[in-house]
Amino acid sequence: MTIKITKDRVPDILRAIKDLTSKEVLVGIPDTDAGRDEGAISNAEIGYLMETGSPAQNIPERPHLVPGVESAREKIEKRLKAGAQAALSGKASDVDATLTAVGITAENAVKAKITDGPFTPLSPKTLAKRRARGRTGEKPLIDTGQYRRAITHVVRKKGD
């Protein structure tokens, strides 16, 4: 006589799938923690200003958030596929790990885009202001490093 023990894993699978689909990963600079050591403008505001530009302030667009994340699309898709497979196996604990890995991947891609560019060069006026403050760097988006360090990710429930 053969005894077969079957465990119903459907509830685990449904819970893991629900967990995966009810969360989102956000990459950028959270406005609640976007302060700077100096100046009146926050890192989140700088990010928006650099991403979209400001003709009124003679600031060209220097897109880096969206293109940075886009540059990591293939890696992100692979991680999400692995997370979905884990969810289909009922491994709810792997869902958060997957979403965190996606966030870190996207965050690092944005930071790499800031470092590598290419961007519209800084104006001579901006470069002169930097030199007057003792700065020698000429890369757009990189002066003190505060902005790049502020790039982060969060995993949260959708709608929060």
Rank of each mutant, 00 (worst) to 15 (best):
K4Y: 12
T6V: 12
D8C: 09
D8Y: 07
L14D: 13
L14A: 11
K18P: 04
D19H: 15
S22H: 12
E24G: 04
L26Y: 10
L26N: 08
G28Q: 05
G28F: 00
P30I: 00
D31Y: 14
D33F: 11
D33W: 13
G35S: 10
D37T: 13
G39Y: 03
G39M: 04
S42K: 03
N43P: 07
N43H: 02
N43M: 01
E45K: 05
I46H: 12
I46T: 08
G47I: 00
E51S: 02
T52F: 12
S54N: 15
P55S: 09
A56L: 15
Q57C: 03
L65H: 02
V66Y: 10
P67N: 11
E70C: 04
E74I: 05
I76V: 12
A84E: 10
A87Y: 00
L88R: 13
G90I: 02
S93K: 09
V95T: 05
A97W: 06
T98W: 01
T98I: 07
L99Y: 06
T100A: 14
A101M: 10
V102R: 00
T105I: 04
K113S: 05
I114P: 03
T120M: 02
T120D: 07
P121R: 03
L122S: 13
P124G: 11
P124A: 06
T126P: 12
L127A: 01
A128C: 08
K129I: 04
R130H: 05
R131P: 04
A132L: 05
A132W: 06
G134Q: 07
G134R: 07
G134W: 04
R135F: 10
T136D: 12
G137R: 05
L141A: 03
I142F: 13
I142G: 03
D143I: 00
T144K: 02
G145P: 08
Y147V: 01
V154E: 13
K157W: 11
K157I: 12
K158M: 14
D160S: 14
